[in-house]
Amino acid sequence: MRRGAPGARGGAGSRRGIGGGAADPGPDDHPASRPPARRRGGGAGRAGRDGAGRDRESRPVDPPVRVSGPGRLLRGLAGVLAGGLVVLAAGLVVVEWLAGRNGVPGPGTGAIAAHLIAAVVAVTGQVVADRRADRTGTLAALGVIGTVALVLGLGWFL
């Protein structure tokens, strides 16, 4: 008999010892050897069962956002500026760390905090601008551009 087959006895080299028997799962009984279960609900949403065995409700999927050409350009510009502000804030953190390590004055905690807060505001506004195709999305994109303009104007040029 082959090792691990139903009815095979566990010998000295067996993990279970004596009396493995029919209760011993064979190599084909392992959960990883079975194909994945099919999802209910046609694959849309996250239908399935929760930990208690109850059916979960599936969330409706939003249709894709349709934005005109100028709106797409505005949102793209806002996204680039928001990403640049995140890079600028991260760069200031690195410069402050290097300055403190070498014993020279750095940008300071206030400037770093202002840049980090502005980066969070810009990224949040960009997320709203990307998800909304209406006036709210346009205003969020303009808010991102205004936030970046404030940080650059007040923190770097004035």
Rank of each mutant, 00 (worst) to 15 (best):
R59V: 08
D24N: 09
G45T: 04
G79F: 05
R40T: 14
A47P: 15
V144Q: 01
L142R: 02
S14W: 07
G103W: 04
V123M: 10
S68T: 12
G76R: 00
R101W: 02
L92N: 07
A5H: 06
R72L: 13
A90H: 12
G125K: 03
G79E: 10
V128G: 06
I112L: 15
A44W: 03
P64N: 00
I112S: 11
V144P: 00
L73A: 06
D62V: 02
G146Q: 01
G71P: 05
T109Y: 10
S68R: 12
P6V: 07
D130S: 11
G69D: 14
A122F: 07
D62T: 00
V67L: 13
P105L: 06
R132K: 02
R56A: 11
V123F: 05
D55H: 11
G51Q: 12
A119L: 06
G137Y: 04
A82Q: 00
P60W: 12
V95M: 08
G10V: 03
P25D: 05
T147Q: 00
T124A: 15
P64Q: 05
G108C: 02
G137L: 07
G69F: 15
G20R: 14
W156E: 10
I112K: 10
G103S: 03
A90Q: 13
V144C: 01
A23N: 08
P35S: 05
N102T: 14
R38K: 10
V95E: 06
A113D: 11
G153K: 01
S58K: 15
T147D: 00
L74N: 09
V104E: 10
G155L: 00
E57V: 13
H30P: 14
G42Y: 01
G21D: 09
L152A: 12
A122V: 09
L73N: 00
V120G: 15
I145E: 07
F157I: 10
L81Y: 09
P107F: 14
V93R: 08
R38Q: 11
P36M: 12
V104N: 05
G45I: 03
G108L: 04
R131M: 11
G79T: 05
I112P: 08
N102M: 15
G42C: 03
F157A: 11
A149F: 09
A37K: 08
V128K: 09
G143M: 01
G83H: 02
V93P: 04
L77Y: 10
D62L: 03
E96Y: 04
A78V: 01
P6C: 03
S68Y: 06
P107W: 13
A141V: 14
I18K: 14
V94T: 07
A129P: 02
R49A: 11
G79Q: 08
A118G: 13
P25H: 04
A113G: 02
D62K: 00
R66D: 09
L154K: 10
A129K: 02
R54L: 12
A37E: 07
A133Q: 08
G41N: 01
